[in-house]
Design a protein around this nucleic acid. Structure first.
Lengths: 107, 107
DNA sequence: CATACCCATAACCCTGTGGTTATGAATTAT
DNA sequence: ATAATTCATAACCACAGGGTTATGGGTATG
């Protein structure tokens, strides 16, 4: 059981943080200032969220002069996709098993 | 922008709660007692988690005598899948746009 | 009827964390 | 050199929420 989904779920659970990640996905690379402008929270708050996103592998940062550009790293979402399809898969398996059982009872 | 992922992310962010949901997905319907037995937390804690999962639409409950059976409702994961693929999609679109740009510059 | 069992709710505690302001380091501009 | 800017970090506060114990309602059992 991979521990990866843990960090991803926790990181994406916060609305402000998820909004930042969404913006980076939609609009591409952004500076901290640009992100702060429409985030509704202070710049230090944004920096902390970006730190969390970075630690989860969801964003990359690139320093250019005195500003830092952040960009989404959507490959990091893969463990999330894996986990979700795994859960759906377990369910499907049990459904198939039930189906088999019914068929065997039927004959 | 659907508000559905919000509740899902928040609900699945807690490890104990997610573990309960995973068990229900893997092993099918379970009573509260059975879930409590291997959860590492008290029965009221499990009940609260089940309440949260239920409110998020992730589980169903079925009363039978004095015990309550819970089962996973994996269809509730769909908004999560939608959100994830949407994020990946935005990224892909911007990648395609860049690709187009490079091609046009190339000719 | 009395007792034991299963679960949900209430009341409470305590930690984690998202928010703030204050400040500093690094870079650019005057 | 001085001032202004961009961002990160530190220190602190307040609250959400996950944990506990205590309790009660409903159901099976003796």
């Amino acid at each position: 059981m991979s521990a990866a989904p843990e960090l991803l779920f926790r990181t994406l659970a916060d609305p402000t943080r998820r909004a930042i990640f969404e913006r980076l996905c939609r609009e591409g690379e952004q500076t901290v200032g640009a992100l702060t402008a429409r985030s509704g929270v202070s710049q230090p708050a944004v920096s902390k969220h970006l730190g969390a996103l970075k630690q989860a592998g969801l964003v990359r940062d690139r320093h250019e002069g005195r500003q830092t550009h952040y960009s989404a790293q959507p490959g990091a979402l893969n463990p999330l996709i894996d986990w979700t399809s795994q859960m759906a898969g377990f369910w499907q398996n049990r459904l198939d098993a039930l189906d088999d059982l019914l068929k065997r009872m039927d004959q």
